[in-house]
Design a protein around this nucleic acid. Structure first.
Lengths: 211, 211
DNA sequence: AGACTGACTGACCGACGAGTCAGTATCGGG
DNA sequence: CCCGATACTGACTCGTCGGTCAGTCAGTCT
């Protein structure tokens, strides 16, 4: 599935299969709920073979996160395109961002999981880095919009960036839940959701008024 | 700490201590990472004693979620007050909602964890119920505002409700992360964050325009 | 006193977890 | 054809897990 295992596996069929299986299982069930045996079985190899490539379970987990982080970051940065007006850039970002989230749900959940961890900072820094980049890009788009006079000056770009990211993340995370809610009709149309969402946001931050 | 263990413990000092310890550990590390021994130690009793109150680990976890759910739901519904204008109600809700989230981080993380689980639906329904209630309340506030002509009619209440909830949840969840980001100055002032956030939102959905 | 009850414990069990190891299959280069 | 290295395996160790059990202890009712 084109995951960026190459970055951590330096070629090698077996290794890639391991990371792919681990990524799936870790994302679905979390670190502690997944045994090395389960990973091996899913990858179609023996458990001991995993230790040929990775010194221990933590290292494998780290490798998975690293590989996932690389591809996820690349994917999401793709969504950032600061050309055109701020409005255009925001619409473009929101739509692409959410679309990418939905296209690779496992990677996303892997990172959301990490963000929830309190005790052991297994790879918080890694998870953080990706989000920080994204956040910075978004803030920049908004700032440029402000400097150009396209957007109002009385709001904090970081605030709106947070709102936008939050809107997408919560949509991603509670999609199934929302689906059970009868009157919600944007559940299966992420583009609709994003378009409407950015419109509301823009009306709140655009310079002066129009319809 | 006033958690609603009474709902599941029918009095009894020991039982309450168990649930309290379990709540803390489960919230911090997740179901699989917490052993019965750890819970017993933290509660200051023997492991076997836990089985005097709960038939197995899953039952204990369920009880914790149930108790947490009860108190969390009560807490959050407190934030809902549909008296006054929609603007007032939204401001009131946002501030209280976030404040409650931040006041009981463990309960929140317990539920966010559950929302992430894919395979076993240990208690998804339970976690869902709370959110659904809240969501419905918010939607209603917005609908009333629309009917009264206070808010525009061209937006989906469910969409804005989602945005508001999302804004609060992401703030809660990535607070530490945001703190490392230099230019963000609303991190340690949730009220500021919420006031500004709702203002932007309101400007986007309020009928006609004003400053 | 004695019978009964619920809270509680230490010692134990089988299962399964991560990780090890001795050894086999495979394969490219000399 | 053999050699060394790399890919890979089954069988093992050992610690910890969830869960059980026989039994102690404090109180309470009669």
């Amino acid at each position: 599935m084109g995951n960026d295992a190459s970055s951590v596996c330096s070629e090698g069929e077996g290794c890639r299969k391991i990371v792919a299986a681990a990524e799936k299982l870790f994302a679905d069930h979390g670190f502690d709920a997944v045994s090395m045996h389960a990973i091996a079985t899913d990858a179609g190899i023996s458990k001991a073979n995993i230790y040929h490539y990775f010194p221990n379970k933590d290292a494998l987990y780290l490798a998975v996160l690293q590989s996932a982080g690389a591809s996820l970051r690349a994917l999401l940065q793709e969504a950032v395109d600061s050309s055109g007006t701020a409005s255009e850039a925001l619409h473009h970002f929101a739509a692409n961002h959410l679309q990418h989230l939905l296209a690779r749900p496992r990677l996303v959940r892997l990172f959301l999981r990490e963000l929830l961890e309190k005790g052991e900072p297994r790879a918080r820094d890694l998870a953080d880095a990706g989000l920080a980049d994204l956040f910075a890009s978004l803030v920049q788009i908004l700032q440029v919009g402000q400097e150009r006079g396209e957007l109002r000056n009385d709001f904090d770009p970081a605030l709106v960036a947070t709102m936008l990211l939050g809107a997408n993340v919560i949509f991603f995370q509670s999609r199934d839940l929302l689906r059970q809610y009868p009157t919600v009709h944007f559940v299966d149309r992420p583009e609709d959701y994003d378009r409407a969402m950015v419109e509301v946001l823009l009306r709140g931050i655009r310079q002066s008024s129009n319809a």
